[in-house]
């Protein structure tokens, strides 16, 4: 096997095959840090990371295909990381986002990579940030990260992406759905996709009203709400303009700091989980909790070597 360092050098030099193999190496590092991490991050060119999230079937993949076409016509090389869930039972996965993006398959300046979440909750794989770093080093900008379509709790994409786009559909449910905590709170841009369907404008109006600041402790500005139809290619140019324009907001120091915190916390959680599982007492502790001989919190602290 070619060394990761050689793959990185080749990928930076424009070798797409090396880039692809580099992502495999990064994806398979499990709980160890890749040896080339420092070089990989130094090679970053500051690409705009755009997260696209929202419920399954909302048209995220199709929307990304049309956005990609728009960015391509502006001469930008586009990277796409499409995450789909792994089976918690078998570890297998069906990665089916690419099927919506086949119109770009002959274009070497569009690099699409499907990733299985591999047992991680929250809509991203543990190594998605490394794959994004590889695409950045290879000169792709923007890099679009499509999360699994989990819905309400997958807010961690906001920690990774500079700009988070939440894709909704006209039939999104009643107004209480929109004021529940979670996904919409992390949106930098909200898109009502499938705008060709009845009710899209009304859904957009409702969302705008519900997302406007209600006072209180959150001082974040309300995210713009846009209506698109990936099918009819309407609203796409406006969305690209809004995403590109959001870059300036994303680069504000307090936003950068917030993302940094989120990224660290994510890795802390991954690391803790790996350590607990690797502890030889893992099975014993699990059985003790199952038999109600101890509680999960005490077991967790012992497995991490913390004072109980």
């Amino acid at each position: 096997m070619t060394e990761p360092a050689a793959l990185l050098t080749a990928a930076i030099g424009g070798d797409r095959r090396a880039l692809s193999r580099l992502i495999t190496v990064l994806e398979n590092t499990d709980d160890r840090l890749p040896t080339i991490l420092a070089d990989l991050l130094t090679a970053g060119r500051g690409a705009h990371l755009v997260g696209v999230t929202g419920p399954p079937g909302g048209g995220k993949s199709t929307l990304i295909e049309t956005l990609t076409a728009e960015w391509r016509s502006a001469g930008r090389a586009v990277g796409v990381l499409a995450v789909d869930p792994s089976s918690p039972l078998t570890g297998g996965a069906i990665l089916g986002d690419r099927i919506r993006m086949m119109s770009h398959s002959a274009d070497t300046d569009v690099f699409i990579r499907s990733m299985a979440s591999r047992g991680v909750l929250g809509g991203l794989a543990a190594t998605t940030w490394l794959a994004a770093a590889a695409l950045d080093a290879a000169g792709f900008d923007p890099i679009v990260i499509e999360t699994v379509g989990a819905g309400q709790s997958e807010v961690e994409v906001a920690a990774l992406a500079d700009t988070t786009v939440v894709v909704e559909v006209p039939e999104r449910g009643d107004e209480v759905q929109a004021i529940k905590a979670g996904l919409l709170e992390v949106a930098d841009l909200v898109v009502v996709n499938k705008g060709d369907r009845p009710g899209a404008d009304r859904a957009a109006r409702q969302l705008r009203a519900l997302l406007s600041p209600a006072g209180g402790r959150i001082r974040r500005a309300a995210p713009p709400v846009l209506v698109t139809s990936a099918l009819e290619r309407t609203g796409i140019t406006e969305l690209v303009v809004a995403v590109d324009r959001h870059r300036a907001v994303a680069d504000q120091p307090e936003r950068v700091l917030k993302r940094a915190e989120g990224r660290i916390l994510r890795l802390v959680a991954d690391e803790a989980r790996a350590r607990a599982r690797a502890n030889p007492e893992w099975a014993t502790e699990a059985q003790a909790v199952a038999a109600s001989e101890t509680d999960p919190l005490s077991a967790a602290r012992r497995l991490l070597g913390l004072p109980s």
């Binding site: 692809s20 297998g92 069906i94 086949m102 002959a106």
Partner: peptide
């Protein structure tokens, strides 16, 4: 079925040209 056997399956759908298949295989490694 392959998913249930623990494979990660990238499915690209109908009417693929040989070029599309090769390019997808390379990017997906």
């Amino acid at each position: 079925g392959l998913r249930d056997e623990g494979f990660e399956v990238i499915y690209t759908g109908l009417r693929q040209t040989p070029e599309m298949v090769a390019s997808a295989a390379a990017q997906e490694d």
